[in-house]
């Protein structure tokens, strides 16, 4: 990371601090959803004594808490800031700067992620206290989990960055943002483990980048997949990171051409 990227990250962190109330409230949606989903699954597993889809209550709980963490990371201000730049036309100012726009936005997003980590730790603690502890992996499994968790950040960035660019073609971001969250909820396994879906839906999920956001780190955490399978899933995360990163550059070029042609 170059110096100006570090500055952008620091500035974004400053924004988080300045608007901390709004920042936390924005992240509340994922937390509320987690409370509802965990509560429903607790009943499904007969108040925590039974199991569903081969997962015990403790495992399901761990799964959903990971879903909460990865759902919160890279979700607060990133997409709105991206969209706002385009909608307000301020993106034109960025075009004349001698910086890589995409990389600059990623650096900025890392600043928000720092805020989100704080929120995840705080709210996660509350959820753990409310619903009880979860088994923690160790050794190679833990290392693999951390890698897949870190991979979530650039992966989600790719998706958010792409959806934010939709604003070159629309007047507002609200609908795009809501649609992205909904699709992510369905295809990432944020609400239910993908293994519980009918086969055709499972196939659709596996073809998409979304399981890399929730399902992969959660399954690795639970030890539901062997080391070989875990490595394969993580590799798949990185393939999607590369595809989305390069794809975003292509869409950006198209958008900028259009932007210059229409004058914003």
């Amino acid at each position: 990371m170059r110096a100006h990227h570090r500055t952008l990250t620091r500035l974004a962190w400053g924004t988080v601090l300045a608007y901390r109330a709004d920042f936390v409230l924005q992240l509340l949606g994922v937390a509320v959803q987690t409370v509802a989903v965990i509560a429903v699954w607790r009943v499904v597993t007969a108040g925590g004594t039974g199991s569903a889809a081969g997962l015990t209550w403790d495992q399901l709980k761990a799964y959903l808490l990971i879903a909460f963490a990865t759902g919160t990371l890279m979700s607060g201000f990133t997409d709105w800031q991206l969209a706002e730049r385009v909608l307000s036309g301020n993106v034109a100012l960025e075009l004349v700067k001698p910086v890589d726009y995409q990389l600059a936005r990623f650096a900025e997003a890392l600043g928000y992620v720092a805020g989100e980590v704080v929120v995840v730790l705080a709210m996660g603690t509350v959820l753990l206290v409310a619903f009880g502890g979860v088994p923690v992996p160790g050794g190679a499994q833990a290392v693999l989990f951390l890698i897949s968790l870190l991979a979530v950040i650039p992966l989600k960035f790719g998706l958010i960055y792409l959806s934010g660019m939709a604003c070159f073609w629309t007047e507002s971001y609200y609908g795009v943002g809501v649609a992205r969250v909904a699709v992510t909820n369905i295809l990432s396994g944020a609400l239910v483990p993908i293994a519980l879906y009918p086969d055709w839906l499972q196939a659709l999920c596996r073809l998409s980048p979304f399981p890399g956001i929730v399902s992969t780190p959660a399954l690795v955490f639970l030890g539901e997949v062997g080391v070989a399978e875990a490595v394969r899933l993580i590799a798949w995360q990185f393939v999607w990171i590369a595809v989305l990163w390069l794809g975003a550059r292509t869409v950006w070029r198209l958008a900028v051409t259009r932007f210059s042609a229409h004058g914003g």
């Binding site: 429903v40 699954w41 609908g175 795009v176 649609a179 969250v181 369905i186």
Partner: peptide, 29 residues
Amino acid sequence: RTDALILVLASVLTQLAGIVFLTTVFAQV
């Protein structure tokens, strides 16, 4: 119009996520 359509699509997808969740849950119990 585009924004309205996106909004409609987004809300349908949101409710769909809820329905998928409930359907999966009731496949178990």
